[in-house]
Design a protein around this nucleic acid. Structure first.
Ligand code: NAD
Ligand code: NAD
Lengths: 264, 264
DNA sequence: GCGACTTTGTGCATTCGTTCACAAGTGGCT
DNA sequence: AGCCACTTGTGAACGAATGCACAAAGTCGC
């Protein structure tokens, strides 16, 4: 039964077709090519642009006015060629022989990332994690005001968290529509995540960040980014194991109990 | 001054060389090829294996014994060809015409991910997020016991959180070495992250998960996975803006105020 | 035992992303 | 005015990851 697909942000992977239809165009043989179909920015580049933006904001605060791709690249932890190519996707805002003006880059990246308008966020599941998210000041200050909180627990409903009262999950569709929520954050136990996700979608939310360790099934027009701590830890574990293996010239993997890892 | 690189997990990107030296081997012309040098598993596949593992664990609990690549792929939200290729990196454990045995896959994936031994975790920065992490039961139960907590705040030092007393950050190197911490989780304010990271590295920690919105500079042998909420939100914002743009056949982007997005 | 059917495992083409390396601009200095 | 040092922007080569499609390998019913 071909089950719904969706689930954009695999983990550290960059899925291909965003919308299926419309983006790919298998048979464009003759036809008129009207305009260059808004050059696509590689998914991976978008993620890095967000990082550049933060680094640049920090630099702006330090009063830095101009910098070279080499400097920005070092600060962002990437290769300078990659950085220049990333920036080239959004236009040509540098000056050869000089570098980039910080404020110009900030403006342009914000424009591309759609940060010129703010995007209201709803957090669902006000437990340990949900509390942390609701109280976190870093979102509102960056154009992502937390405009709704939801939980199923009657003891929580009505209680203000981070200055905003918690609503009941039954009201998700109505309130999300009313408050024009554009991003939903799921921080419920795994078992509840799919149901919560469905309600968010019913409320018109097309962008979701999911902290629950489950794979959400969503319609095509909805984008899900997964944040999965357990997966992160397991990836690290994999690399640790790998490193240990490659040192295993003489076997005895289990004998190696004195866990000091290269002390430095 | 070539500044330190490092910073493994860009975001949604899959950096190439894990260890630089040792992994690639430019000139293996004649020489004896003893064994096939542990075929490399693509970085992106590793992340998915962790997801398959969780899905499989869930299935095992439901009493499912056998399943096909198609079924597992649907449950994990990926294409079945990709799933089979991912599994093929770790060996051939399926039966043609039948499928895979859940318990076999679970064992094999755990083996590959290095989950046969447990990896002690230290959390640094016991604030909102740190508390949530320290109290979270999902890590210990999956082979990642939280074995140390650190903070700079004197009021917190000594206080037990999730059953474990908080230690002072000055003791990071000593305690990490003593307790054989293999993974460090940074949940401090951004300004403190680099210093904390340095101490973890000094304590022999070679794997780090960083929640602070800063780019950490680490030596080559240390792997950093970044978890960056703000970046996730901005990526979603980008796609929202993009969708809005592509609908803009007749302009008036700002006029579209009745946020209902295809309600469904 | 045999043939029909199912599902794996993988070679291959393709698409996506990174890196190299250099021509083309820019500003400053003489 | 001309030259030089510097830095961008990008074409092109490379490499990684994805998806297709099918042969190989197995099961099941008879
Ligand atoms: N706490 C962490 O550090 C951490 C780390 C990684 C992943 N996670 C994941 O994040 C999620 C939340 O974790 P947590 O530690 O905050 O859990 P928690 O148990 O503290 O909080 C869960 C909250 O969700 C609410 N809830 C339960 N069912 C609900 C429903 N149907 N609709 C709405 N709300 C509902 C509960 O009332 C509770 O307030 C879990 O899926 C967990 O696996 C948490
Ligand atoms: N809370 C969230 O939902 C959230 C979301 C995304 C990112 N983050 C990031 O995670 C980090 C932690 O967020 P938070 O909300 O828990 O912040 P918080 O202010 O609640 O907690 C920070 C903790 O770090 C401690 N600390 C300060 N300096 C330290 C140092 N030098 N060494 C060790 N500990 C130190 C503080 O005492 C405090 O306990 C921040 O970098 C934040 O940007 C948080």
């Amino acid at each position: 039964m071909a089950a719904a697909r969706g689930q954009r942000g695999g983990d550290r992977d960059v899925p291909a077709a965003p919308n299926a239809a419309e983006v790919t165009m298998p048979i464009p043989p003759i036809s008129d090519a009207p305009m260059q179909r808004a050059r696509a920015i590689p998914e991976a580049a978008v993620a890095r642009l967000a990082v550049y933006l933060r680094v640049l904001s920090g630099m702006a605060e330090q009063g830095i006015v101009t910098l070279s791709s080499e400097e920005l690249a070092a600060a962002a932890g990437v290769n300078s060629a990659k950085l220049r190519k990333d920036l080239s996707y959004i236009g040509s805002y540098g000056t050869r022989g000089v570098g980039y003006e910080v404020s110009v880059l900030v403006d342009q990246i914000e424009r591309i990332l759609g940060l010129t308008r703010s995007h209201s966020v709803a957090v669902v599941g006000i437990g340990n994690l949900g509390h942390a998210l609701a109280n976190y000041g870093g979102f509102p200050s960056r154009g992502f005001p937390v405009a709704a909180l939801f939980d199923v627990d009657p003891d929580l409903v009505g209680v203000p968290v981070g200055g905003l009262p918690v609503s009941h999950i039954d009201d998700i569709p109505r309130i999300c529509t009313e408050r024009e929520i554009s991003i939903g954050v799921i921080a419920t136990p795994p078992a509840a995540a799919q149901a919560v996700c469905d309600r968010l979608v019913a409320g018109g939310v097309a962008s979701i960040v999911n902290f629950a360790p489950v794979v959400l099934q969503v319609p095509d027009h909805v984008e899900v980014r997964k944040v999965d701590l357990a997966v992160e830890l397991q990836i690290l574990s994999f690399h640790v194991a790998r490193r240990a293996d490659s040192m295993n010239v003489n076997g005895s993997a289990l004998g190696n109990v004195d866990g000091v890892v290269i002390g430095r």
